[in-house]
């Protein structure tokens, strides 16, 4: 299948999942927010968060068995991955969301905060990839 078609099908699943979470729990499917609520100071509503995260991690385990090629190799060495992970952790909590919460959910709800967030992280993400690709 063409990569753009796979991308579109994957997107439908992601959007459908976010819609399901909104309809059943009344919650935004924002991964950084759901995960952040499980870290101290913990959110009070941990049951649905834990269930969602178990499902998400379960998909990775299924992939390891059925389609290991779906998970690509890292493009950076350990020091750079640590820096990247730290920035993503700090940035998503400071900015109240990531690609899922602001991108998929916030834009769909026409949130002005999410629009500013997406434009900002797309810009710094592109700039960083361009600069890092030069080395």
């Amino acid at each position: 299948m063409h990569s753009w078609l796979l991308a579109a099908v994957g997107g439908v699943l992601i959007g459908g999942s976010a819609a399901l979470l909104m309809l059943t729990q009344g919650r935004i499917a924002g991964i950084s927010g759901i995960l952040g609520g499980m870290l101290p100071p913990m959110a009070v509503d941990r049951d649905w968060r834990a269930a969602f995260l178990f499902g998400l991690l379960g998909a990775g385990i299924v992939a390891a068995v059925v389609a290991p090629q779906a998970v690509g190799a890292s493009v950076r060495g350990t020091p750079m991955l640590v820096v990247a992970g730290l920035l993503v952790g700090i940035g998503t909590r400071l900015g109240s969301g990531c690609t899922s919460g602001h991108g998929v959910c916030g834009l769909a709800r026409m949130s002005p905060r999410s629009l500013v967030s997406v434009v900002t992280f797309m810009a710094t993400g592109a700039l960083t990839a361009i600069i890092a690709g030069g080395f």
Partner: peptide
């Protein structure tokens, strides 16, 4: 804005 900017840098790196 600062949070989104930092997140984008981490995303673009890793």
């Amino acid at each position: 804005v600062l949070g989104a900017a930092l997140f984008g840098i981490g995303w673009g790196l890793g």
